[in-house]
């Protein structure tokens, strides 16, 4: 850890954190994500997705909401040109997520194309878990930790989805429901713990309440609306609270 501030460590990643990230396969978030993809494997099979198509789509898309929209679209016979905007709209959250993430893991001399490459591994679970662990990891170990963790997640979730697809495992309905239910609870509790300023907790509550409200008005873009409006409102609160605090 003493290398954290030594001048020669700038721009050089400490790849020993890669294995520590990969070892996080045995963690609660990894277990939950693998469970979610067990559900997805069954869903994809029902939609008529072949095994190799499934193995291809899990890491190449790497965002569960995008997976779900694609597979539901294929099952319903939706044309490509209608699937693209639906996925793009649901994936806009990747933009602020990436912008919040990169400053936490980059080094002063990180190359942009390296960051572009690793940004493809950003999805809620690995993003959240890395942000949560980041304060305890020296800066030069954060990107390797993330790559190790997200990489092992990609392998594990692809294997889990493929296995369920092959076994055609038909778990009882309540087991599948319980598996699906892990994801929202994990996302909620983990974002609460990851937040740095009170405004982020407010953003969590606002986004949660506004999502279903906007679903009644703009069902295709409710997540985008709730995120942008809820996020700006929470930021407004942050500015207001800071101004009052500094008086």
């Amino acid at each position: 850890m003493s290398t954290q501030d030594s001048p020669d460590s700038h721009g050089v990643y400490d790849w020993s954190w890669f294995t520590k990230g990969a070892a996080q396969l045995f963690s609660l978030p990894a277990l939950i994500l693998v469970s979610a993809f067990i559900g997805f494997g069954g869903l994809a099979r029902e939609a008529g997705i072949s095994l190799w198509q499934l193995i291809f789509m899990v890491p190449s898309i790497w965002a569960l909401p995008s997976h779900l929209i694609l597979v539901a679209g294929i099952a319903a016979g939706v044309p490509l040109l209608a699937i693209i905007p639906a996925v793009a709209l649901a994936a806009v959250r990747m933009l602020p997520m990436t912008m919040a993430f990169i400053p936490e893991v980059r080094m002063p001399r990180s190359k942009t194309w390296h960051l572009l490459l690793i940004s493809n591994m950003i999805a809620i679970t690995a993003w959240m878990h890395t942000l949560q662990k980041a304060p305890a990891i020296p800066r030069n170990g954060r990107l390797p930790f993330f790559v190790g963790f997200a990489g092992i997640l990609m392998v594990a979730t692809t294997c889990a989805a493929a296995l369920v697809h092959q076994l055609a495992a038909s778990f009882p309905g309540y087991v599948m429901a319980a598996l699906y239910f892990l994801t929202p609870i994990y996302f909620a509790t983990s974002s609460w713990n990851t937040s740095r300023v009170p405004a982020e907790k407010l953003a969590l509550v606002l986004g949660f309440c506004m999502g279903p409200l906007f679903f009644m008005v703009v069902p295709q873009a409710n997540i985008l609306f709730a995120g942008v409006i809820g996020g700006f409102a929470a930021f407004g609160f942050h500015k207001f609270a800071n101004r009052r605090g500094s008086d």
Partner: peptide
């Protein structure tokens, strides 16, 4: 800070979607 607020609110809206309009067995 603004970016973190927006990304958190977006994730929260995804959470709500998973509970209010779930897919599959749930």
């Amino acid at each position: 800070v603004l970016v973190r607020c927006v990304s958190t609110a977006l994730v929260a809206a995804v959470i709500a979607q998973l509970i209010f309009e779930p897919s599959g067995a749930l």
